[in-house]
């Protein structure tokens, strides 16, 4: 298959690791060669966290090169802006959850967090398609990652991976009420318009 590179980003604590793992396993269930790598360690304490996922690459590095991600998935709006500049490729897509965890600079009033409009404007300049999401009735913010995954699935943003692959991957990783709750959010997003 053709290469497909994904760069995921957000803030430590937002559930990037799980989202990335679901995507990797879903790709594997769909029969795609896949590799990836996450940030671990110290940065997870409220710092910027990233994950790289590469489909179709066999014996190459798991790291996505700068400016070459086909899809950027961002769980937070400032990190979406950062990843747009560092990793999105022109012609690619940026899907982001519309929430802001302000950086210290923003909290101290030294800079302002980008608004959704700022980000969409920056995307247009870079010829990147922005898809912003916010699920108003989401009960547990820790499942924002599943909101994004649902939208990715509905819009077929990752070629070759379908609903059944994602659900199977979720079943590999979660159990009991956690699995049920995550599946519920995921499926609601599939039905949404």
């Amino acid at each position: 298959m053709r290469r497909f590179d994904i760069y995921l980003t957000g803030v430590g604590g937002q559930g990037i690791g799980l989202l990335s793992e679901v995507i990797i396993r879903a790709g594997d269930h769909a029969g795609l060669p896949v590799s990836g790598v996450d940030t671990h360690g110290l940065a997870q304490r409220g710092g910027m966290v990233v994950s790289h996922v590469r489909f179709g690459a066999l014996r190459t590095t798991p790291l996505v090169r700068l400016g070459s991600a086909d899809l950027v998935i961002a769980l937070e709006i400032s990190e979406a802006m950062r990843a747009l500049h560092s990793h999105a490729r022109p012609g690619g897509t940026l899907v982001f959850y519309d929430t802001a965890w302000q950086t210290l600079s923003a909290r101290l009033g030294k800079e302002s967090s980008p608004s959704r409009e700022d980000l969409e404007e920056a995307c247009r300049k870079k010829q990147v398609r922005p898809i912003g999401i916010r699920k108003e009735d989401l009960q547990d913010h820790r499942m924002q990652n599943m909101v994004l995954l649902g939208r990715i699935t509905r819009d077929e943003l990752i070629p070759g991976i379908g609903k059944e692959h994602y659900e199977k991957a979720m079943d590999d990783l979660m159990a009991g009420s956690m699995l049920e709750a995550n599946l519920k959010v995921f499926r609601e997003m599939l039905e949404g318009s």
Binding site: A43, G46, M48, G67, M81, H85, H87, T103, E111
Partner: peptide, 18 residues
């Protein structure tokens, strides 16, 4: 060489106490 990406306009986000 890929074109060097633009610098992000945002301040870095170092880790912090929870």
């Amino acid at each position: 060489m890929l074109e060097a990406p633009e610098r992000s306009p945002l301040a870095p986000r170092p880790p912090q106490m929870c």
